[in-house]
C-alpha cells in the first residue's frame, strides 16, 4: 500500500467518482419514483383542484384537517385497522401452530412442510379469486351471505389473506424454531419441563424476534390490502369494506387528487407509526438470543 500513499487524494477522488457512478441508477430511480412523489403528495394536499386538475388553489393545511377528520378517511382507516385485527393475530397463531406441528423428526415430514408452505405459490389475486368463489352469496361453495352483510363483509374478505399468508407465516416461524438449540430443550426435559411449559418458557421467548418480524410483515400486508377488496367485495356493501388503499385508488381523477394525496399521507403516517411502535414497544420484551 505504501506506493499508493502519494496519489491518495487522487485515488480518493476516483473512488468517490466510482461510487457516484454505481449509485446513480438507484438514486435516479429512488428520486423519481419514491422521493419526488412523496414530496408531491405532501404538497398536493395543500391545494384544492377544479375538475380538470388545473387551476390549483392554495388552501394551506385546511384540506389536511378536513380530510383527516372527515368520515371518508376515518371509515377507510377503521376498515384498514380492522383488517389488521382480523389477519395478524390469526397469522401468528396459525403460523406457529403449523410450524410447531411440522418441526419434528418423522418419516415424510418434508411432504407436510411442503404442503404447509404451499400457499406462497398463490398471489393475492389468485387467493382472492378462490375466496370470491367460496364466499359468493349466489353460487358460493360455503353457502354463506357474509359479503352482503356490512358487519361481516370485511371479515369474509380477510379469510383470503389469512389463508394466503399461511405459507409465509409457516416458513418464517419454522426458520425461527430451527434456531432453538436442541441441547436447551433436552436440558429442560431433564429438569422436568413438560412440552407445554417447554413451549411457553423456552421456545416462545427464543423465537419472539422472529414473531416480531412476522408481525411487522403481516401488519404491513394488511394495511396495503387492495386486490382482495377489489376482487372479492368490490368495497361493498355500500362501502363497508373500503380500506384506505382502496379509497386512495378511487381518488385518481384530477379533481380528487388533493383529497387522495392527504389520504396517502395518512396511510404513510399510520404505517410509519405502527412499524415504529412495534419496534419500540416490543423491543424490550422480545428476547434477542446471543
Amino acid at each position: 500500500m505504501a506506493e499508493r500513499e502519494t496519489p491518495a487524494r487522487a485515488s480518493r477522488l476516483a473512488e468517490t467518482g466510482m461510487a457516484a457512478l454505481f449509485l446513480a441508477p438507484s438514486i435516479i430511480l429512488f428520486a423519481l419514483f419514491f422521493f419526488y412523489p412523496f414530496e408531491q403528495l405532501v404538497l398536493r394536499g395543500l391545494y384544492r383542484n377544479n375538475a380538470q386538475g388545473t387551476n390549483l388553489r392554495y388552501v394551506g393545511w385546511s384540506q389536511y384537517k378536513d380530510v383527516l377528520t372527515g368520515d371518508d378517511f376515518r371509515a377507510g382507516l377503521v376498515h384498514s385497522l380492522q383488517y389488521v385485527l382480523y389477519t395478524v393475530p390469526a397469522g401468528l397463531i396459525l403460523g406457529t401452530l403449523l410450524a410447531v406441528a411440522a418441526h419434528r423428526k418423522l418419516r415424510g415430514i418434508r411432504i407436510f412442510q411442503t404442503i404447509f408452505s404451499s400457499t406462497v405459490a398463490t398471489s393475492v389475486a389468485v387467493a382472492s379469486v378462490l375466496f370470491y368463489v367460496l364466499l359468493n352469496s349466489q353460487t358460493g361453495v360455503l353457502k354463506v351471505d357474509w359479503l352482503n352483510d356490512p358487519n361481516l363483509a370485511l371479515f369474509g374478505v380477510s379469510l383470503s389473506s389469512i389463508w394466503q399468508n399461511l405459507g409465509l407465516s409457516f416458513i418464517i416461524v419454522l426458520a425461527g424454531l430451527q434456531t432453538v438449540p436442541t441441547e436447551l430443550m433436552e436440558a429442560a426435559t431433564l429438569d422436568g419441563y413438560g412440552p407445554v411449559r417447554r413451549f411457553f418458557r423456552i421456545t416462545l421467548p427464543l423465537i419472539s424476534p422472529v414473531l416480531l418480524f412476522l408481525t411487522v410483515v403481516l401488519v404491513i400486508f394488511a394495511l396495503q390490502a387492495f386486490a382482495q377488496i377489489e376482487l372479492i367485495s368490490r368495497g361493498g356493501p355500500a362501502g363497508h369494506s373500503e380500506t384506505l388503499v382502496y379509497k386512495i385508488f378511487q381518488h385518481q381523477t384530477p379533481d380528487q387528487l388533493g383529497v387522495g394525496s392527504v389520504m396517502a399521507v395518512g396511510l404513510f403516517v399510520v404505517t410509519f407509526i405502527v412499524t415504529l411502535a412495534q419496534f419500540l414497544l416490543l423491543d424490550r420484551r422480545v428476547h434477542y438470543g446471543d
Binding site: P37, F38, L41, Q224, A264
Partner: peptide, 14 residues
C-alpha cells in the same frame, strides 16, 4: 417506508 400504495397517485401522474 414508501411503498407503491403510498406513492400511487403522484407516480401515476409522472
Amino acid at each position: 417506508l414508501l411503498p407503491i400504495e403510498v406513492t400511487l397517485l403522484p407516480n401515476l401522474h409522472t
